[in-house]
Nucleic acid binder design. Sequence first.
DNA 1: ACTAAAATTATCAAAATACAAGAAAATATG
DNA 2: CATATTTTCTTGTATTTTGATAATTTTAGT
Lengths: 257, 257
Amino acid sequence: MSGFTRYNKILNLFSEQRSSWTVLEISDELKTPSSTIYRIVRELVLAEFLESAAGAYFRLGPAFIKFNRIINLSDPLVRAGQPFLKKLANENPIESVNVLARLYGNKVMCVADYKTPFFKNNTSYQKGKLMPLIYGATSRAIIMKIVGKSLEDLLKQETFYDDNDKDTFFKNLKNDNKKGYCKTEGQVDEGLIGFAVPINNKKLGIEASLSSIFNSIDFLPEHEPIIYANLTSYSLLIERYINQIFDDIQNYHQISS
Amino acid sequence: MSGFTRYNKILNLFSEQRSSWTVLEISDELKTPSSTIYRIVRELVLAEFLESAAGAYFRLGPAFIKFNRIINLSDPLVRAGQPFLKKLANENPIESVNVLARLYGNKVMCVADYKTPFFKNNTSYQKGKLMPLIYGATSRAIIMKIVGKSLEDLLKQETFYDDNDKDTFFKNLKNDNKKGYCKTEGQVDEGLIGFAVPINNKKLGIEASLSSIFNSIDFLPEHEPIIYANLTSYSLLIERYINQIFDDIQNYHQISS
DNA sequence: ACTAAAATTATCAAAATACAAGAAAATATG
DNA sequence: CATATTTTCTTGTATTTTGATAATTTTAGT
């Protein structure tokens, strides 16, 4: 264990399921002497990446809240997309959850969302939660724009039931790409139906998607063209807005240097 | 520069004002050779604490969004307080912003907030933003429960105009502590008036406050007892709920070990 | 308040790794 | 395609990290 890894391994132990650890537990888990862990944890506490809780436990520290805010204010995708999510929601014919998601390693992560006030169910897509790469419209709309070796690398870790399953997956992906949007039902959450379109910006290295998720019960076939039209027009707006934000940042750097 | 400092110094360059940096800029700023910065940045990118943007720039990475979510789901203060903010807001006699804040080093940070739909102004208190320690009811309600050497250490970095200013500050603090709540007007934001009560849990090391912020124009003296009663009763509820959450976590650790 | 247990910090020599500086490679730009 | 820029690689040396143990501090139970 060396470099940043030694800190990252400890931080990554803290999860939704297990949000507090003692030094001894960390030491056991990472098979590293406790004297070493004490030292590293102390450093992380000093930097507010961890903080001590009751009973010798430690939990994630407020530094993450601070940096998360900076991202919300500055990430071009979040900045460009966030303001449109509510508008998109209001133009959808039925109650919806609207999500802006992006690649995160070989997972997909929601970075902004807006749920209409009376939407019944909970979706798995929540800001910051990692979602499967190959299931759900939200994820598929992202990867359908990735091709060649990049796609291969990305899917390397994924397991398909069999070759047939894999073939179907690629055929669907190609098909969706031709249509320009993606629709899946119940792949991630039972009883929900999702529509998604890709959002890309090669210059900024953005590989993302915009999606609307509905309760299957509410959904009627005649809604589909409206949903698709909304998603498409907003994704174009967002892509254009991303460029504008990028130009702003460029100008800022030129002026200040 | 050694240990976590070497990573933290780089991460802390990324701010609301300046959210993207090139390796060369970092190298200049920290007076460290670029080959070293390249190595460190590469490590941070690998861990998703940074990510590369267009034109050799880097920005904060999605790891912060992920960890921020885990905090929202697991931090006892956030978990205990979040659900009550909207209720508190609805029971206030006028439009309000309601804030849960805590100590963060020698600053104060908002960790959860709820603004009523028609509140006009923007407050400086936003989730994740660092606020001054000695101005504003939100901050003062936190420090008024801290005494002795802890308080001294905390205030070491603060500068007062003169000794008189300092004396007044301590006298007010003592006074507020006796009353049980804190009220300030225009100390942080012009035209806003804030009320705050402390939230503490010694066992969990929680030093926080609950506050309601109003537009000065809306506020009438007869509102004050209602506001105070609401804040007090909700702070007690939250303190009790924190203990319950703590017990839940305790039980979880006992069962799983 | 006292005591035992637990948690945390300090010490230090050996081992591992980060460093600086320039060269080389990869990538972007016009 | 040529050039400029960005990024990675290489190497001996200096610095940092490590981990076993000891010392200290904190916590919890009587």
